[in-house]
Structures are given as structure tokens and as C-alpha cells.
Amino acid sequence: MTERSPVLSVRGLSVRFLMPGGRRIAAVTDAHFDVAAGECLALIGESGCGKSVLASALLGLLPGNAEATGEAMLGGLDLLSADERTLARTVRGRLVGLIPQSPAAHLTPVRTIRSQVQETVAALTGVRGRAGVRSAAQAAAERAAFPSDHLDHHPHELSGGLAQRAATALALVGDAPLLLADEPTTGLDRDLVDHTVDELRRHIDHPGEPDTAERALLMITHDLAAAERIADRVAVMYAGRIVELADAEEFFGFPGPRHPYSRGLLQALPDRAFTPIPGLPPELGSLPDGCAFAARCDRADDTCAVLPPAVGGVACHHPVPGAGMEASQGAQEDVRA
């Protein structure tokens, strides 16, 4: 798919929550994926599917009762086994720039944007001296298209779009090779969504100074239109597992998703069939042994009582044929719309 070497490489990542009474919740199970420099991977799925937990695991922000296993390599460091000191000193801000879900809540309410950006510059870069920090902060704001005449404003004086850019400016300061955007478009108007994702795209395509390396972007979202606009590849999560990993153009265009759940999600869009997937996702605390989607799937049969392995990016016993497969498999496989 891409020849560039991965910035982030996730192998067999699982997260279990240990609940009172010995109950275990399988929030994320056996996730494998890479994100390369200059690439955007969109991790999509409904709320509660495990995608936010996966993000927290990468940032070392899981609650105390969570247990993460597997590997997530970034810049020679395994994020999952790093201790809090390493996470605080070298990971957050320096290796991973976080663009949060609600920027207004992420910013400190009582301080101006300028002082927050300057503080981040002083903490994350080698820039020293008042004048130096001041101009570096201004440059960071400019990179995020945050208007310099608003730098002395407080967060509550900013529109949703500007708060988003302020948070983005903070995320860009440390020049981290990986940007992690967690539902960056929730609650924004469509025009602002388009604008926000276009800006995110710009930060991975042209990260500012010509000699800096390209960034990788992992965007976690339930907004399929935003994902379609920005992503090179999509990872679809269902009940804690990545059930499909696909090229974004093929996924949103032709031949479309191959996993029945992904197909159902796209068909639910108001500019497509607008029909919901029947039923609800299973509880992460009591997942079935076989395919977790079986109870809602119109392609399910007896084989689905066994967990489907991920083959060619799709974890399904009866995937819809993909690109270049119509001729060989189309005859035997019943393509249900």
C-alpha cells in the first residue's frame, strides 16, 4: 500500500479493563496497523467500539484498572511499555501531538492562548529567551492558521473553529512525527468540518519548514464524511477489533467496503440507503466466541461461530469481493447490496 516506513507500528494491541467482581472487559483486541509519514489513517467505528481506548493506550492515558498488551512502536520506543516519566517527557507532545475532541475543554480557561502556546514552546523545544519563545509561539500559531490578533484572547472568547486551531497549534509545537486527532470534528458544522480536516491534511503533507520530515496522522472519528475527505486508509473497528483495513478510495468508492459491518455503516449514511444496521453491538464484557457481528449480519452462517482471521485486511468468513476479485469470486459469492 505504501512503501514509506511506518512512523507508528501497532502489533497485537489489546486492552482489558478489570472490573469489580473479577469481570474483564475486552475494550481492544489484537489490533495491528501501521501509519506512515505523510499518511492519514482514519480509525472509524461507533461510540463504545474501543477506538478511544486505543488512542488512550497510545498516549499512556489509560485508567489504573486497564491492562495493555502487545506493542506500539514509535521512534524506537514501545509506547505500551514506556513508564510515566518517559511518556510525560518524551512521548506526549514530542512524539505524539494530540488534537483533542473538545479543544475548548483542553485549553486552560484562565490563560490567554499566547501564554499557553509559549509555555508549550518553552517545555517542548530548545528555544530559550523571552523574545525567542514569543516569536516561536507566534510561528506555531501561524502554522495552525490561528490569527495572531487573537493570541491574547482567552479560550471562551474563541469560536469553535478558532479553539480547534489553538489546540492544533499546541499539538504542532513539539514537531511530533505522529499527530493523533481524537474526534476532532464532533459538534462542528459541516463547513467547519471540511475546513478542519483540510487543515489537518495540510499539516501532514507540508509540515511547515521544508527540511522537516513528513508527519503521520491517526484520526479517530465516527464522522464518515470527514474520514472520506482526509484519509488515505481506513481502519474499521467493531466490538474492540479492527475488522477491516482498506484503501480509503476503494472503501468509500468502488468497489466499496468488504466487511459486512463496514458496508452496513456506509449504507446507513443519509446520502446512501439511510438504513440502519439492525440490532446493537455486543457488550464488550461478554463477547461471543465467534464473529462479534454475527447476530446482526445477513451473511452469517455456521462457520461464523468461529472467530474469523484477518485475511487481506478483512476479518470475515464471507467478505464481499474486493477490487480485482469480481471475476474470480463474483460467480460464487452472492453480492448482497
Partner: peptide, 11 residues
Amino acid sequence: TAMLDASTTAA
């Protein structure tokens, strides 16, 4: 439906 995924929205 502003906070919801496509399938829950349609439902």
C-alpha cells in the same frame, strides 16, 4: 444525532 454514528443516526 450530532454525536452519533451513521447507523445509530439512521435507526
